[in-house]
């Protein structure tokens, strides 16, 4: 932490957009490389504060591969002024980056376990670095399942990549959509349907689950997981709140006793279970 204390945590570093590509209608991914100095290593689940010149800053999870040091990838949905500016950058543009911040998915500690990822919507992006880690070290895990829910077939993020994961014999993928479209032959409904299906054949005590998505999706998924017998201390969730500083100064991301920027965003579920069932915390 000495290094962090030495620099001004509110000062961005400049990164060049190496490549930008469209993921979905309103979602783009950016691959970044620092203009000055070396890229900073990150852990799966951590996030950066991305700055668009003259517009502002927003917290975005890192969605790329932590083992690949060549570029830093973020996946951004255009939902406001800053995310709009960030999704509209071109190759070669410069943006500001502070980070990485926050806690990580403890996938590396969960070797030997049957790993279940539960993602809702863009929640797949913060999970992807952890998925990469398990895929690359697949022999160290007894199972790998991804349950992914999106609003519609057109909203499925990383669809081609998911297909390639699904085609592996050592990976289970369950996809559900809230609303089907013509030609959709898959599951329709909430994520928990896919979750119950995926859990049916596996030893629940062996499961370590990592969840990211809307709070209500995570709440019901946790209920399904624990009802099926997955130990609560083997369930992790990633929380989201407004963030202005990412270093514990601005107060915006408080969730009861925790600052989501420093104590999270990844929490073991029993750390936040007292408050996650409360409205407007």
């Amino acid at each position: 932490m000495e290094a962090l204390l030495a620099q001004d945590p509110m000062l961005p570093r400049r990164y060049r957009v190496k490549r930008v590509w469209k993921e979905l209608g309103d979602v783009a991914s950016l691959e970044l490389e620092p203009i000055d100095g070396e890229p900073v290593p990150f852990q799966p689940g951590q996030f950066n504060m991305l700055y668009a010149f003259g517009v502002g800053e927003v917290a975005i999870s890192i969605s790329g591969d932590p083992a690949d040091g060549s570029g830093l990838v973020h996946t951004i949905r255009n939902v406001g002024a800053v995310s709009a500016a960030l999704t509209k950058v071109s190759d070669g543009d410069v943006i500001g980056v502070r980070g990485p911040f926050g806690t990580a998915w403890p996938v590396a500690q969960e070797t030997g376990r049957n790993i279940v990822f539960v993602a809702g919507g863009l929640g797949l992006a913060p999970l992807r670095p952890a998925i990469y880690h398990v895929l690359q070290n697949r022999a160290h895990y007894s199972g790998l399942t991804l349950i992914y829910g999106a609003r519609s077939p057109d909203d499925l993020l990383y669809a081609e990549e998911i297909k390639s994961w699904k085609s592996r014999f050592d990976t289970e993928v369950e996809i559900t959509v809230d609303h089907a479209a013509p030609g959709w032959t898959g599951q329709v409904g909430v994520v928990t349907i896919g979750l119950d299906k995926a859990l049916a054949g596996i030893d629940k005590a062996e499961v370590s689950a990592f969840l990211c998505g809307p709070e209500i999706m995570m709440r019901f998924s946790v209920m399904s997981l624990t009802a099926a017998g997955v130990p609560e201390e083997r369930i992790w969730v990633s929380m989201e709140r407004n963030m202005k500083c990412a270093v514990g100064f601005c107060g915006h991301c408080q969730f009861g006793p925790d600052f989501i920027c420093r104590d999270g965003p990844v929490f073991r579920h029993d750390q936040v279970s007292r408050l996650i069932s409360k409205k407007e915390v």
Binding site: P9, G248, F249
Partner: peptide, 11 residues
């Protein structure tokens, strides 16, 4: 204590 929280310090 707020502005020097162990991880980050407000210079």
């Amino acid at each position: 204590r707020v502005f020097d929280n162990g991880d980050f310090a407000d210079a």
